[in-house]
C-alpha cells in the first residue's frame, strides 16, 4: 500500500517543446481536435465549447493560459478533458502520449527557472533522467476567480 501511495500517476503532454504533467485522476479523456464553437465575451484563452459526447464542454488553450503563443493546430494537437471541482474543461495541448508513475519524493516544490509561465499554476517540477516535467496545479489553472479577474481586466 505504502509503496503504491508514494507514486503519482500522471499524464505527460507537450507545450511549446516542454513537458508538463497533470495527475491522471483529474483527466477524463484525451481527444483529437474537433470543431470548437466560439463563445464571445470570454477570456482570450477560452477558445469556446465543444460537444463532447453530448456534453457541452468549454475549451481552454493551455498555451495561451500559461502565456505562451497561441497554438497552431496540427496532427499532434490534443484536447485533454480534465475535471476539477465539478467543472469539466478541455485543455488544448500540443501533444499527449505518455503516462508515467512518478515517485512523489522526487517532486521538487521550487518551480524556479521553469520559464515564462505564471508561477502559481506550477505545483512542482520533476527531474527524470534527462527530462524535466512541470507538474501543473489544475485548480489554479482553471480557477474561476482568475477567470473573472481576466474578464474584468478585459472589460
Amino acid at each position: 500500500m505504502e509503496e503504491r501511495n508514494s507514486f503519482l500517476k500522471v499524464i505527460v503532454f507537450q507545450l511549446n517543446g516542454k513537458e508538463y504533467t497533470i495527475p491522471v485522476h483529474q483527466v477524463g479523456s484525451i481527444e483529437r481536435v474537433m470543431p470548437i464553437t466560439r463563445v464571445p465575451g470570454t477570456a482570450p484563452f477560452v477558445k469556446g465549447v465543444i460537444n463532447l459526447r453530448g456534453i457541452v464542454t468549454p475549451i481552454v488553450d493551455l498555451r495561451e493560459r500559461l502565456g505562451i503563443d497561441a497554438a497552431r493546430v496540427n496532427e499532434q494537437t490534443r484536447i485533454i478533458t480534465a475535471k476539477v471541482a465539478d467543472m469539466a474543461v478541455g485543455l488544448i495541448v500540443d501533444g499527449a502520449n505518455d503516462l508515467l508513475d512518478i515517485n512523489k519524493e522526487v517532486i521538487e516544490p521550487s518551480p524556479e527557472a521553469v520559464g515564462t509561465e505564471n508561477l502559481e499554476v506550477v505545483q512542482g517540477v520533476v527531474h527524470l533522467e534527462r527530462r524535466l516535467l512541470v507538474l501543473l496545479n489544475l485548480e489554479k489553472v482553471l480557477s474561476i476567480d482568475d477567470v473573472d479577474d481576466l474578464k474584468k481586466v478585459k472589460l
Binding site: T37, V39, V49, I55, V56, P58, M87, A88
Partner: peptide, 27 residues
C-alpha cells in the same frame, strides 16, 4: 438547452448552448 458549465457561467448575452444536428454546438 444545455448549460455552458460552471466554468463559463455568466457569459454576457449567452443563456446556454445546444447541440445541433451536425453535432456542433450552437450558442
Amino acid at each position: 438547452l444545455k448549460s455552458l458549465g460552471n466554468y463559463l457561467s455568466g457569459t454576457y448575452a449567452i443563456s446556454g448552448a445546444t447541440i445541433l444536428g451536425d453535432g456542433q454546438v450552437a450558442l
